[in-house]
């Protein structure tokens, strides 16, 4: 009797010690299968030359990385990505901020406008890209019709990157609109009244009150935007396939091309690792 009761209590102890971990198992399992395993496998692959099935065949150490940094195509890809990120982040933040400021006052129909500004968040990048492609079509596109021009926008290296960046900026502006709206709502309304009694006009109010009031959220939004911009893929795939030339060959697209067109999985893995390091450094730097 005594013996068995002590056994039960021991089992109970063991269970209460392991119980918290049991709850964590499902998510850890999912993360491991879809995130951690591919992540470590990628790092592993980046040190190998692979066959066409993506199996590691020949250990080359940092050979893949060396090749990448000597390849002008990859350096170009890094440069293009940098320009792209700068344009995207500026456009998306500006659109989001302007929209949020416009929608910060209540007036009839405010819900319609709020939804309109937040909508890009809900649109899949590929479907937006399809619509964009039709709009920019050299012969039937509305852009050329309206501007009375005859430009093959997406085939011209001068415009292609900027256009893809504008589309991406607009797509990302939805979430920025939400962040900024929340940020503006948290600024005390009366400080504006006080400022107008003090003698500050709208510009001064924006510079001295709104921007400092938004600064915590502004910072967070920049980080999220940069990360998001680095990872853009769908719109490039549909609009330009990295072209014309390598004008829109962003890193993620270049990884995709290396892996699934050229079957150079080792090199693609190395590029992925570099992208990961860049984003991680930026994130650490910002926080």
């Amino acid at each position: 009797m005594n013996h068995s009761s002590s056994r039960i209590s021991r089992i109970r102890n063991v269970f209460s010690a392991t119980e918290p971990y049991l709850y964590l198992v499902p998510s850890i399992l999912i993360f491991s299968i879809f995130l951690f395993w591919p992540f470590f496998k990628t790092i592993y692959l980046s040190f190998y030359k692979t066959n066409k099935l993506g199996q590691a065949k020949l250990f080359v150490g940092i050979g893949n990385y060396k090749e990448l940094f000597q390849s002008s195509a990859f350096i170009n890809s890094l440069y293009v990505t940098l320009v792209f990120v700068i344009i995207v982040v500026s456009i998306s933040m500006l659109l989001g901020l302007i929209g949020a400021i416009l929608c910060n006052k209540t007036f009839p129909g405010i819900r319609f406008f709020s939804t309109a500004y937040a909508l890009p968040m809900a649109i899949a990048s590929s479907s937006a890209a399809m619509i964009f492609r039709i709009m920019l079509h050299p012969s039937i596109g509305i852009v050329n019709k309206l501007l009375h021009l005859n430009i093959n926008w997406l085939a011209d290296p001068r415009y292609a990157l900027v256009l893809v960046a504008i589309l991406t900026g607009w797509l990302n502006s939805g979430i920025d609109f939400l962040y900024f709206s929340a940020g503006l709502a948290s600024i005390d309304e009366t400080i504006y009244e006080r400022a107008s009694v003090d003698g500050a006009g709208p510009v001064r109010q924006f510079v001295h009150l709104t921007l400092p009031g938004l600064s915590p959220i502004l910072f967070y939004t920049i980080v999220v935007n940069i990360i998001q911009a680095f990872q853009s893929f769908g719109q490039v795939k549909i609009l330009t396939q990295g072209g014309p030339g390598d004008a829109t060959n962003l890193i993620v697209y270049s990884i995709y091309r290396d892996a699934f067109f050229n079957y150079r999985f080792g090199s693609a893995a190395a590029e992925s690792v570099i992208l990961f390091v860049i984003i991680m450094c930026l994130t650490l730097l910002m926080f």
Partner: peptide, 11 residues
């Protein structure tokens, strides 16, 4: 003007 909730600039 002095406001009920002080209206000081927080930053």
């Amino acid at each position: 003007m002095v406001f009920q909730n002080y209206a000081l600039y927080p930053h």
